[in-house]
């Protein structure tokens, strides 16, 4: 049952996402596609001197789950190291979303921002 997906908290993030837009001069700049629907997320981020995430922005049109997930993700990961982000998994995202259980079809939507960030960090590590 997806009932709890459409609670006020997630809908607020959907209608008024935080950190919506594009960062200037980002360290991470990545676009990731959800293969089931063709939705894309464009994620930009900066790291501080210690290599921790200091600012994240996203843009893209998506469903409630992917938009709310991206919106919450932009603050959830602040201060985290690349290794800490690499270690994040689905349960972390479900918890971030307020403890929802996601049906199989919606997992990909929720995981899109995390996947984009992981890919962006890998790209950054390779270019360093």
């Amino acid at each position: 049952m997806n009932g709890d997906l459409y609670r006020e908290q997630l809908l607020d993030h959907y209608h008024n996402p935080e950190n919506f837009g594009v960062l200037e001069d980002p360290d991470i700049d990545i676009t990731q596609e959800n293969a089931t629907c063709g939705d894309t997320i464009h994620l930009t981020a900066k790291l501080d001197d210690e290599g921790r995430i200091s600012k994240v922005m996203f843009e893209g049109h998506g469903c409630v789950v992917s938009t709310a997930s991206a919106s919450m993700f932009t603050t959830e990961v602040l201060g985290k190291t690349p290794a800490e982000i690499e270690a994040m998994q689905l349960p972390d995202i479900q918890q971030m979303l307020g403890g929802v259980t996601l049906s199989m079809g919606r997992v990909k939507c929720a995981m899109l921002p995390l996947e984009a960030m992981k890919k962006g960090l890998q790209k950054l590590a390779k270019s360093a």
């Binding site: 049952m1 997806n2 009932g3 997906l5 459409y6 629907c37 939705d39 049109h61 998506g62 469903c63 409630v64 789950v65 992917s66 049906s103 079809g105 919606r106 939507c109």
Partner: peptide
């Protein structure tokens, strides 16, 4: 979004 339509209809 179509995903949300399908989820809400599923309920």
């Amino acid at each position: 979004h179509p995903h949300d339509i399908a989820s809400i209809l599923d309920e």
